[in-house]
Design a protein around this nucleic acid. Structure first.
Length: 451
RNA sequence: GGCGGCAUAGCCAAGUGGUAAGGCAGGGGUCUGCAAAACCUCUAUCCCCAGUUCGAAUCUGGGUGCCGCCUCCA
């Protein structure tokens, strides 16, 4: 069985065949670091994280690169607002990025190139594009000529003539074609800039990814990923630049995740309907958020709501209850391995089919029930969950209790033996109210867990 | 105007030709001093219409509703 991926380029599910057998070059479009990340960002990076983990589970050696855009109009504006340098600003938000993503259990990429560290590489590509007539210089700025790219629009399925130029944004009259995009932008007075053959300025947005992909991963990479909103114009333009530059296909598989919505509308800064990751982390742990984001197929729009996360928290706890109850049970395999294999196969089949984490998590719950019925299979549950980046939270059943709590537990046991249930129940309430300890009486004795 | 997506139980959500995974919530039950956890059990014919087919939630056509992209955006 092989992995099938929905490729935006063809709009079909295709069998995944990497350029080099057993290896995957994987580029993910990162963030522009001028603010905190919101749940929409979280979804993208959780999705690509479990896709990466699954590829690794299937034995691929994955080279995973994600960029930081650390020079851009919004960054300049925000730095000016605050009266700090762009370096100071971007450093702050890069470290905030890592704090947030670490809490969501997102594995670190193999490299995190920054735009400001790729100025030379970008200039080299721009020079080449000019030389080969794909780009033109006007007034110390450089534009890419979309008409020179014969298959422009192939990713987003757009036909240049059908696009409504300037319908929502003013068209610069410098451009030969309204859809030409900027490769090098002239620095205005007071703005940061780098010397170039065309004057002091800074790179356009799209060119950084072309330069980074080329240097870090090669001319043709296996997977290029990002949010659905990047398909046009960002990824379309990357393709135009890179393929004009190298003469080779830029990326074989394009993966785009669906949006996070608030009441059926895209979560976006401009709509002011977003929740930052750190805001949601005030109330929920990162794994719950991660789980919430994984229970829907990655291309389906996902409505964000606190009710939805509550539901996921409840569901995740169900799995943890099982793990806690069975993790120390000696596993035997002979007479159960065949049955367990069915769960394993279902899980793999779901993930093989365009990384269907929604179906895969469903399998986790089917297995969960099997474990509770038979007592077998918790190892498999842990294994499968970990492929998705779950079960990171250490169970604290063996953790040391404070003396106070321990003595309350003892006191309750004595009360129970004396059939003084009123007292026992009072202690139970107190443990919950004052210490967030939930008591469960079982045949083997008292079990407790923290809320 | 062009392009694309979605519509499945109270809620969330898989499933792309053979009679609807899973989760949450709710009802009933087993266990328990009670509770919790767990288990058992109950609750859908898949937006509407027409068509193809022995057979469609799944394919085709039409309709309705919602969303996204064509601006920066994960």
């Amino acid at each position: 069985m092989s992995i099938r991926i929905h490729n935006t380029l063809t709009n079909k599910k295709e069998e995944f065949v990497p350029v080099i057998n057993g290896q995957v070059s994987f580029y993910v479009c990162g963030v522009t670091v001028y603010d905190y990340c919101h749940i929409g960002h979280a979804r993208a990076y959780v999705v690509f994280d479990y896709i990466r983990r699954y590829l690794e589970y299937q034995g691929y050696k994955v080279r995973y690169t994600q960029n930081f855009t650390d020079i851009d109009d919004k960054i300049i504006a925000r730095a000016n607002e605050r009266g700090v340098s762009i370096q100071e600003l971007t450093r702050e938000y890069i470290s905030a990025y890592f704090e947030d993503m670490d809490k969501l259990y997102i594995k670190r990429a193999d490299s995190y190139p920054k735009a400001t560290e790729y100025i030379n590489e970008m200039q080299d590509i721009i020079k080449s594009l000019i030389k080969n007539n794909y780009a033109y210089i006007i007034d110390e700025e450089v534009f890419f000529s979309v008409e020179k790219s014969s298959d422009y629009g192939k990713l987003s399925k757009k036909v240049l003539d059908d696009l409504v130029a300037g319908s929502r944004v003013e068209v610069s009259d410098k451009k030969r074609n309204p859809f030409d995009f900027i490769l090098w932008k002239k620095a205005k007075a007071g703005e940061p800039g780098w010397d170039s053959p065309w004057g002091n300025g800074r790179p356009g947005w799209h060119i950084e990814c072309s330069a980074m992909v080329n240097k870090e991963l090669g001319d043709t990479i296996d997977i290029h990923a990002g949010g659905e909103d990047l398909v046009f114009p960002h990824h379309e333009n990357e393709i135009a630049q890179s393929e004009s530059y190298t003469g080779k296909p830029f990326a074989n598989y394009w993966i785009h995740n669906g949006f996070v919505n608030i009441r059926n509308e895209k979560m976006a800064k401009s709509k002011k309907n977003f929740f930052t990751i750190r805001k949601v982390l005030e109330k929920y742990n990162g794994e719950t958020i991660r789980f919430f984001l994984m229970r829907v197929h990655y291309r389906t729009p996902l409505n964000f709501s606190f009710e939805g996360i509550d539901e996921s928290a409840q569901a995740l706890e169900r799995l943890y209850n099982t793990i806690k109850l069975h993790k120390n049970v000696k596993q035997n395999s002979d007479n159960t391995s065949e049955e367990l294999k069915v769960f394993n196969d279902k899980f793999v089949k779901a993930m093989d089919d365009d990384f269907n984490s929604a179906e895969a998590t469903g399998v986790l719950f089917e297995l969960n029930k099997y474990i509770n019925k038979t007592g077998y299979g918790v190892d498999l549950l842990l294994k499968l969950g970990k492929i998705l980046g779950l079960f990171n939270i250490e169970q604290d059943s063996d953790a040391v209790l404070t003396e106070e709590i321990q003595s309350l537990l003892d006191e309750r046991m004595i009360a129970k033996k004396e059939r003084n249930y009123e007292k026992a129940d009072l202690i139970r309430e107190r443990l919950f109210n004052e210490h967030s300890i939930i008591i469960e009486d079982t045949i083997e004795g008292v079990r407790w867990k923290r809320k």
